[in-house]
Design a protein around this nucleic acid. Structure first.
Length: 943
DNA sequence: TGCGTCACG
DNA sequence: GACGTACGTGACGCAC
């Protein structure tokens, strides 16, 4: 059919469809692989609706979906800031664009786009061609930019509101008829598209002026007649910008569209390709509907294909409103028989997901015994399975298990297939804990989500990520506190002593809360654009860390106890000497008493009191006193206290405490890493902290000799060389620093050479030391005061160094300023890998602002380094899978391994490759990452 | 429980 | 012009 009178062309604004679909729907994902697919689903539904509802005489004879080709168009040539304000595309939307093109073709509908032109221009051109040929046009869109086309056989149709937009509607919206709409838009401008317009003039005023003067050119020519001075000045001062604005908003009805209108004739969908596409997308309902309409059989598909991210239940169910369901503790079920357990397992399989929580006898997963398991599938409905509750208080009952509990083995055997089922998502709060508990029972949980880590990815820097806090903040519900069950302090009991009835209310609530948090966080994760961070940097780390913690590191208690004894003697000797110098006995470990002895009794000048009224007696203060030999006895005393403190620290924190952390079953120390502890993305090690084992002094380093490899094994240590400075060189884009790293030269010496004009071969250690301090200072958000204190030089001198540094490397200051400006604007900073660190205090007043500013400067650098080693750790198990080796510890830029004798070199090669390539392919650094390696029988030798 | 101190990167 | 200041952690002992 040749296009002409009686023909009706429908032009669908495809880009508008996509955005509306994206924002109208929760972030659905394809079940088989998690591909974000919500916008495609909405797009297909809307397109199908368009194709079906208008069949018959009022329906289209010709149809096309029109897309924007890319963000770059001829309008960018007219005005370089056009659409410059547009926020970045959500990361889960971008991959859906090509799929919507594919969908359009699958429905056998013409799909148009053209380089250099917006969809609106193509629509304008086709509408002109169609009306010139005598046909009618309906534009399926509600975009105000298309309203200039209305009239002369062209109407618009708002598909969301099922409302036709004709000439009257346009007049209602703009105050002028369609042919004058561009004049109004030119004057009013558009903040969304960054069309400048005239300052202070909105649509109302613009319409008023156009109606008074007739059209834009007349208005501009006679602007002098306008009475209101502000309007007059706005027009006279911005005439050029207004004319540019008009060119920006005027659609090009003569775009070089290829093909003819005849190509757009409505065609029946081809069942084959359409069914293939819809079933590949796993759109279950739409596939069925389309199949029915085409009178063909729908292809088979698994149930619940789409994973609704926001609601466990269909949208019509009240359960879809997570915060509306009250917490009813009496409604929680206690599972005491096999039938009830099987009922729950069936419900879990039906839903495809389950929130899980374990109750145990200890926070130390390596010593904890399983006491019970709670599950939740639907908000408000949760259960608790008691397994290991014991009689409390009754001497005669002793350790006997209470009646009416299913055997733990039976329950674990029944749950194992569910917990390991690839098709069932397990949801937990701090999953590493439960993962380890189950791992000790031979169950490896997968796949899983972790609400603590979701919160961390979204909210780092804003608040902590513990369950009680998250529940209070995001669900408006304060869960039962564990303290109310166990008590605190000396009288605290373990969870197995809690009566089952009480335990049900507490434990099931935890699963309930976790499930609701997950439902609340899922869509937010996409909106905050941290899905990739969560999925690549947080979640996969859980099993990796769990394995490392379970492996533990062998610590030789004999070495430690010998050292403890030696330290004790040393301390006693020092203590006697100190008290003799003081002339009286006192507690050397009390800063308060020491301060009084030094400054009041012995009369050392210059004592400074802190906020508690006590004298400051930190190492820097004591060092100053010790160095001042004029003082005599007090200097000697200060020097001995410094020695005493060092020994005391080593004994109490390391040689004594570490012994108590040796697990009697494994003979090893099992630290626990918190993934969501440090705001910057770094891990934190606790119970014990194995990230601060001494290394800087000779005496301290000997403690590392107690960390030994198992029999027939060696320890291997690999650490990133200068990783934070390398990241700084990359992100601040400093050519001299980048070149130095590429050439492999001493970075601190290079800095010194550039700053002080000293050739590298004449560099003194002192000059290099200063440059090193400045390099670190930069990473920390340098200040003259801080550098002066660190280098113990006058403040003016330190400031001069900093000034020189910024002169030689001007990019550093630009980076710092840009980072702080970004933080002030957005409230967070970001690493190269997309990790967000919030900076809520950045706009504060007073000293707080200084802290926030420096933290904001440091966070992207420290955070990127943390991201890189996380990536390396996640890839490490497969990278060393063939080797008799395992990863034991992470110390921010170092990984420590245990490997069988003879395989150390192979391990070093594999691990080094993984670490040096860890930024790829997400980020291509302008500087190489370099990893140093060492090996030995103990950690001191390996480091 | 808060603070001062000090161990690490 | 004064304020205060290097970034990020965890564990210990003392004093309340």
């Amino acid at each position: 059919m040749t296009f002409g009178k009686g023909c009706h062309l429908h032009l669908i604004d495809g880009s508008a469809f996509i955005f509306r679909a994206y924002h109208a729907l929760p972030p659905l994902t394809r079940k088989s692989d998690g591909l974000p697919i919500g916008a495609v689903a909405g797009f297909c539904n809307m397109l199908w609706g368009q194709l079906t509802q208008n069949r018959g005489k009022s329906g289209p004879t010709h149809i096309a979906v029109v897309f924007d080709y890319s963000s770059k168009t001829f309008r960018d040539e007219i005005y370089d800031k056009y659409k410059a304000n547009r926020p970045d595309l959500p990361e889960d939307l971008r991959p859906q664009f090509p799929l919507t093109r594919e969908a359009t073709r699958a429905f056998n509908v013409a799909c148009l786009e053209m380089e250099g032109y917006e969809a609106d221009d193509i629509i304008a051109t086709l509408a002109r061609q169609a009306t010139e040929a005598g046909g009618d046009v309906t534009i399926i869109s509600s975009d105000k930019d298309l309203m200039q086309l209305v009239g002369n056989g062209v109407v618009m149709f708002d598909a969301m509101k099922s409302r036709t937009i004709d000439r009257d509607e346009v007049i209602e919206k703009f105050g002028v008829p369609p042919e004058r709409v561009v004049d109004v838009q030119a004057l009013a401008g558009d903040s969304v598209d960054n069309v400048p317009g005239a300052p202070g003039i909105g649509i109302k005023t613009a319409a008023l002026l156009i109606n008074e003067f007739g059209d834009l050119e007349t208005l501009l020519a006679r602007a002098g007649e306008i009475k209101q001075p502000k309007r007059r000045e706005a027009l006279e001062g911005s005439a050029d910008l207004i004319r540019i604005s008009k060119r920006l908003v005027t659609l090009d009805a003569h775009a070089p569209v290829t093909g003819t209108l005849d190509d757009l004739e409505v065609r029946e969908p081809q069942p084959g390709p359409l069914m293939e596409f819809l079933s590949r997308m796993e759109f279950r309902t739409l596939t069925r509907r389309v199949a029915e309409a085409l009178k063909i059989e729908a292809p088979a598909m698994p149930d619940n294909s789409l994973t609704p991210a926001h609601a466990a239940e269909p949208a019509s169910s009240p359960a879809a409103e997570p915060d509306r369901v009250p917490f009813l503790h009496d409604a929680y079920e206690c599972i005491r028989d096999r039938a009830a357990l099987d009922r729950w397992i069936a419900a879990i399989r039906d839903a495809g997901h389950v929130a899980v929580d374990t109750e145990t006898t200890s926070l130390d997963e390596m010593r904890a015994d399983l006491v019970g398991i709670s599950l939740a599938v639907v908000p408000g409905q949760a259960c608790y399975i008691p397994l290991g509750h014991r009689q409390g208080g009754d001497l005669f009952a002793g350790d006997a298990l209470t009646e009416g509990q299913l055997p733990a083995d039976t329950v674990l055997a029944a749950l194992k297939p569910v917990l390991e089922d690839e098709a069932i998502l397990k949801i937990g709060q701090n999953m590493k804990y439960d993962w380890k508990i189950f791992a000790r029972h031979g169950i490896r949980i997968a796949p899983f989500d972790d609400t603590m880590l979701m919160s961390y990815a979204m909210h780092a820097g804003l608040h902590n990520h513990g369950m009680d806090g998250l529940s209070d903040r995001y669900l408006g519900h304060k869960p039962i506190e564990i303290k109310s069950l166990l008590g605190s302090g000396k009288s605290a009991v373990t969870f197995d002593r809690v009566p089952v009835d009480t335990a049900v209310r507490y434990a099931a609530e935890d699963a309930d809360v976790t499930l609701r948090l997950w439902q609340a966080f899922r869509p937010d994760l996409h909106r905050a654009q941290v899905t990739t961070v969560y999925e690549t940097l947080e979640r996969p780390l859980v099993p990796v860390l769990a394995e490392m913690e379970m492996a533990g590191i062998r610590v030789d208690p004999n070495v430690l106890s010998r050292m403890s004894n030696a330290f004790a003697q040393q301390m006693a000797g020092l203590e006697a000497g100190i008290q003799e110098l003081a002339g009286q006995p006192f507690n050397v470990g009390s800063p308060k008493q020491l301060g009084e002895i030094l400054f009041d009794v012995m009369g050392v000048p210059g004592g400074e009191k802190g906020k508690t009224g006590a004298y400051a007696t930190g190492a820097d203060v004591l060092e100053d006193i010790a160095a001042n030999t004029d003082l005599g006895r007090p200097a000697e005393l200060a020097a001995r206290v410094l020695d005493w403190r060092q020994v005391s620290k080593l004994k109490s924190t390391y040689t004594d405490a570490l012994q108590t952390h040796i697990n009697p079953e494994t003979g090893r120390v099992h630290t626990s890493y918190s993934i969501a502890g440090a705001n910057t993305g770094r891990l934190a090690s606790t119970d014990p902290n194995l990230q601060n084992i001494p290394v800087r002094t000779e005496e301290g380093r000997r403690i590392r000799e107690a960390f030994v490899a198992g029999p027939g094994m060696r320890l291997v240590s690999l650490d990133y060389s200068q990783i934070e400075l390398r990241i700084l060189a990359h992100v601040a884009d400093i050519p001299a620093l980048k070149q130095a790293f590429r050439d492999g030269i001493d970075i601190h010496a290079m800095t010194a050479s550039q700053m002080f004009n000293v050739p590298l071969d004449q560099m003194t250690l002192e000059v290099r030391r200063r440059a090193k301090a400045i390099n670190f200072g930069v990473i920390y958000g340098i200040s003259g005061f801080g550098l002066a204190r660190n280098l113990r030089i006058p403040r003016a001198e330190a400031q001069a160094f900093i000034d020189t540094y910024f002169e030689r490397f001007p990019g550093i200051r630009e980076y710092m300023d840009a980072t702080v400006a970004f933080a002030k604007d957005k409230g967070f900073v970001q690493t190269l890998f997309g990790r967000k660190i919030h900076t809520p205090e950045i706009n504060a007043k007073g000293p707080t602002a200084g802290f926030a500013r420096r933290a904001a400067i440091n966070a992207p650098i420290q955070g990127a380094a943390a991201d890189i080693i996380r990536r390396a750790m996640i890839r490490m198990p497969p990278a060393i899978a063939g080797l008799p080796a395992r990863m034991l510890l992470q110390v921010h830029d170092e990984l420590l391994f245990e490997v069988e004798d003879g395989a150390a070199d192979d391990l070093i090669a594999a691990a080094r490759r993984t670490m040096e390539g860890a930024a790829h392919p997400a980020v291509h650094l302008d500087v190489p990452l370099v990893v140093d390696a060492g090996q030995g029988a103990n950690w001191a030798e390996a480091h």
